[in-house]
Design a protein around this nucleic acid. Structure first.
Lengths: 204, 204
DNA sequence: AGCTGTGAACATATTCACAGCC
DNA sequence: GGCTGTGAATATGTTCACAGCT
């Protein structure tokens, strides 16, 4: 499946949720409008799912949701860990959508001893030693990294060494990782700077 | 300038910062290695800056930084507002890199009266009324949206009505905006789901 | 010798346009 | 009539490969 398509599938899922129960069937046009995408593009994307939309009608909403979930590998919930429980880690830990999105936060971890034992969204913050043990025990493969920039590489190395294969990195640091590990970077400065470009080059 | 190039410029800037004072000159190869990009791609990207690298030598590090900044419209600091001061908004407000990235957080705002007056990173949380006034007064064009999903659209509409032209949206909600307004969406569920796809389809 | 800048080749992604089916 | 699925056309992006400068 093309990379560009993969990156749009979650959007479609989100749009279908937004459309809600009202419609039992959804056309590529309707989905395209909500998603802000060309409708031919939507159809081509969905055709990779081996989806069978009905000509003259559209796609069955629930079936399409199920197909998107299956394609994204969301049939079972992925266990994930959150490493670094500052404001950002806490914010993510409090996010109520993990379950609906297909994920299960099995633990929160921090290197700061004074934080250990505190509760965030009902979960006890655990130590970095616990992190290693938990990853191995639950065969966790995905981690969310919300440590300070300075600690990110070191923590990432440890995560990789105990079996983590996907990292969602919110720390403003470029990680050097083996190419067996997939990483996505979310960076505030980067996003603002991209907006700045378009802002600055706006016709006035 | 191509969209793909624009989205890489901040990365180059970050890489140059990471390379630091040690080198006075940087080759496209060196930059490519740090950034994880093909070196021809780097050269082509930089050629859009009208950059003058020196054959046989490379690019002058400081000059290149300056050119990247200029191209991204970061010559003056953009004033930005943060709307919604929950954990996420607080986390972003505490980010120490705004200044170095080219931005200046002029205020934090929340709709919850019980939060108003509290301090985050030295700034007093202000009301939504203040938000409108401040945007107009300081001619703010960029906003970071960190409200709950339910409030995002309403707040966005207000921001647009008082002159905001770029929104960085962290709320898990799809905003409907006039196409004069540029928006970038940062979504936890989306990022995890993309990772899930590659995780699930990994050769085992 | 070492590096940039860039045309040409290739690869990926998007959109059009329409046949085919309900 | 309305919508899907998709080949063909177009647009965008990446990489190669090398001439040209220092």
């Amino acid at each position: 499946m093309p990379k560009a398509t993969v990156e749009r599938l979650p959007l479609y899922l989100q749009c279908l949720q937004a459309i809600g129960d009202s419609e039992t069937t959804v056309s590529s046009d309707a989905l395209a409008n909500v998603a802000g995408v060309n409708s031919a593009n939507v159809r081509k994307d969905l055709s990779y799912l081996g989806s069978h939309g009905v000509r003259g009608v559209g796609y069955d909403r629930l079936e399409l949701c199920a197909q998107l979930r299956r394609a994204l590998g969301l049939t079972d919930k992925w266990p994930v860990v959150i490493v670094g429980v500052g404001n950002l880690g806490s914010a993510l830990a409090n996010y109520q959508g993990f379950d609906a999105s297909g994920f299960n936060v099995i633990g929160l971890y921090d290197a700061d001893p004074s934080k250990i034992g505190a509760r965030v969204d009902g979960q006890r913050i655990k130590s970095m030693e616990d992190l290693e043990l938990d990853i191995k025990k639950h065969e966790v493969q995905m981690a969310i990294l919300t440590t300070p920039a300075g600690a990110a590489q070191e923590v990432a190395d440890m995560l990789v060494s105990v079996g983590i294969l996907s990292i969602l990195n919110f720390a403003p640091a470029l990680l050097k990782l083996p190419d067996t590990v997939k990483c996505r970077q979310v960076d505030l400065a980067t996003e603002l700077q991209i907006l700045s470009y378009y802002q600055a080059s706006r016709p006035t």
